[in-house]
Design a protein around this nucleic acid. Structure first.
Length: 248
DNA sequence: ATCATTGTTATAGC
DNA sequence: CGCTATAACAATGA
């Protein structure tokens, strides 16, 4: 659920509810429920791993973190939701629930808060800007730069590992060791893999397409895949130490 | 059953 | 102040 492409799927699934009015709102999240009731849903947006519900005079944002999920028109709640919304318009009725998500009211209109040019899943994605941002972190490891949500908003650990494998880059390679072409390729593949992830996830074949993520052997050389935490973020990396050898 | 994991944030500590 | 370490949170499937 949590990486950017999954949020795009959620956004598209929830978008048909735009125009409906909140009839009931409740949950464990700290939200202005009173204000939510009676509000009309005006838009559903995604920015990276954030899902944004825009109402008349307020907007809220959900982040699914590692284990969050949502349900639209479920027969019954899976458990106590962080937020449950009943929406109606004429005869249309929908129930939207969010589980174990970090949900907050936005202090301003979404357009004034979010910059979609850094969202790898957005049409406004700006590869040149990303390239510049990457080069501002010459001393950082590529694994950390890819996970930086201010540069590659929406990019998560799966995309990170798969992109590094495609480029045959070691997760702990420093940005300064990359050639200009490699930086360009890094940015291009981050975007490209995000969209392939989206297509595969829709078809239910995402895992089948993993080349290195949670694999034991390298599909390229047949050698053992290394699995360890890397970078200052200490996130799990899967990589082939032979094909993705560090530069000399 | 136990372990690992698609993530972020607050707080403590140096 | 700035950086890093740690905990906290939570659900699911291998």
């Amino acid at each position: 659920m949590p990486e950017g492409p999954s949020i795009v799927i959620a956004r598209d699934q929830i978008k048909p509810l735009v125009g409906e009015t909140v009839k009931a709102a409740a949950g464990r999240a700290k939200l202005p429920y009173k204000e939510l009731r009676g509000s009309k849903l005006r838009d559903v947006l995604s920015w990276g791993k954030h899902l944004i519900l825009k109402f008349d005079d307020l907007s809220i944002r959900t982040h699914f973190l590692m284990f969050g999920s949502y349900g639209l028109d479920e027969k019954r709640a899976k458990r106590k939701p962080m937020l449950a919304l009943n929406l109606v318009k004429g005869r249309e009725k929908h129930v939207l629930r969010f589980y174990s998500a970090a949900i907050r009211k936005l202090d301003d209109a979404p357009e004034n808060i979010y910059d979609w040019s850094v969202d790898i899943m957005s049409e406004e994605w700006d590869p040149k800007l990303a390239r510049r941002h990457v080069l501002e972190h010459r001393d950082s490891m590529v694994c950390d730069v890819l996970m930086d949500q201010t540069i590659f908003s929406g990019l998560g650990n799966i995309i990170k590992n798969e992109v590094l494998f495609r480029l045959l880059l070691h997760p702990e390679e420093r940005v300064r060791a990359l050639s200009p072409r490699e930086v360009t390729a890094l940015v291009r593949e981050a975007h490209k893999y995000g969209h392939e992830f989206l297509a595969w996830k829709k078809e239910g074949v995402l895992k089948r397409n993993w080349k290195i993520m949670r694999k034991r052997t390298c599909p390229r050389c047949g050698g053992a895949v290394t699995k360890r935490e890397t970078g200052v973020l200490k996130r799990l990396s899967h990589y082939c130490p032979r094909c993705q050898a560090r530069k000399p």
